[in-house]
């Protein structure tokens, strides 16, 4: 990336960043059904012809922008993130290539400013199950990769409590994220997620490394939970098997293959009706 280009971009104001980013991203990812950039990033972004597209044609606009972001100083990075969050807000809550690219870029730049607009989109898509599912799948990466914060908690609770059900496959990441960001209510969330998590275990059980990673993540997330929270969660055999350390008396190092199968079976076969959500939209802490 040319130093002159980095210097040029680093002097952009917030609004200039927004217009430069929006113009380029819209040129790269027009509102179409496919994700292939219709204009290469080096042409789409003003001033980038000799800086983007240099490390192979497989580099997407998101790759190039993330690399640019890493070369900016702290102040310019902050303006970049602001512009990105505004771009995200301006996108419709539907699975378009532009929104996909904006979310990918938010993940690459760990743009915490993107969390409120994403949360808003998940709330707004309550009547569009297809869009909501897609947004939830993307959002699970934010839950996984961003440090615990109020914004992350809001995002996780919006997925869990506001609107129709979410895809089962994100239940594990959702639970870990909620335990990290809202430990006080871990027991409530665990109860709420119990059935969908059981369904996910059915497929996760086939991939033992993933299953063990999940157990370990959950154990770490619950490490600082109060004794009462831990004991409440441990009352459920399903969770006690997932994290044996929840029960002080159990000294196992983790579930064995047989236990994994049993957990999966229990998760699939002993489904209980979903309890009513304890929190109304917007009222959750």
């Amino acid at each position: 990336m040319l130093k002159s280009f980095i210097f040029l971009v680093s002097r952009f104001s917030k609004d200039e960043f927004y217009s430069w980013l929006g113009e380029g991203m819209r040129a790269c990812y027009p509102l179409a059904t496919h994700r292939v950039a219709s204009t290469p990033p080096e042409t789409a972004f003003r001033g980038a012809r000799l800086s983007f597209g240099q490390r192979g044609a497989h580099r997407t606009a998101v790759d190039e922008l993330a690399s640019l972001y890493n070369n900016l100083d702290k102040n310019a990075q902050s303006r970049f993130r602001w512009a990105l969050a505004r771009l995200l807000s301006s996108c419709a809550a539907s699975p378009t290539p532009l929104l996909n690219a904006a979310l990918e870029l938010s993940l690459e730049t760990v743009c915490s400013e993107a969390l409120p607009p994403l949360t808003e989109k998940i709330r707004a898509s309550a009547n569009n199950p297809e869009a909501r599912d897609w947004l939830c799948l993307k959002a699970a990466f934010f839950l996984d990769e961003f440090p615990p914060s109020l914004s992350i908690r809001n995002l996780a609770t919006a997925i869990l409590y506001q609107g129709p059900s979410f895809p089962n496959v994100i239940a594990a990441k959702l639970l870990v994220s909620l335990c990290r960001s809202d430990l006080e209510n871990a027991e409530v969330h665990a109860k709420e997620l119990r059935d969908q998590l059981g369904t996910q275990m059915a497929s996760l059980g086939k991939y033992r490394p993933g299953f063990l990673r999940f157990c370990s993540d959950l154990q770490v997330a619950l490490k600082n939970a109060s004794a009462s929270t831990r004991s409440q969660i441990a009352k459920d055999k399903f969770y006690k098997k997932l994290v044996p350390e929840l029960d002080e008396k159990v000294r196992g190092k983790g579930p064995t293959s047989d236990e994994t199968r049993r957990i999966v079976d229990e998760g699939c076969l002993r489904r209980r009706p979903t309890p009513p959500a304890p929190h109304q939209p917007g009222s959750h802490p």
């Binding site: 994700r35 799948l137 993307k138 996984d144 990769e145 996760l204 991939y207 490394p209 299953f211």
Partner: peptide
């Protein structure tokens, strides 16, 4: 590249976004 744009798949195996097939 192979798994680009397949978040469902990545979540199913409890992988990170840039997860690997090992």
């Amino acid at each position: 590249e192979f798994f680009y744009e397949e978040p469902q798949r990545t979540h199913e195996i409890y992988e990170t976004r840039k997860g690997k097939i090992d």
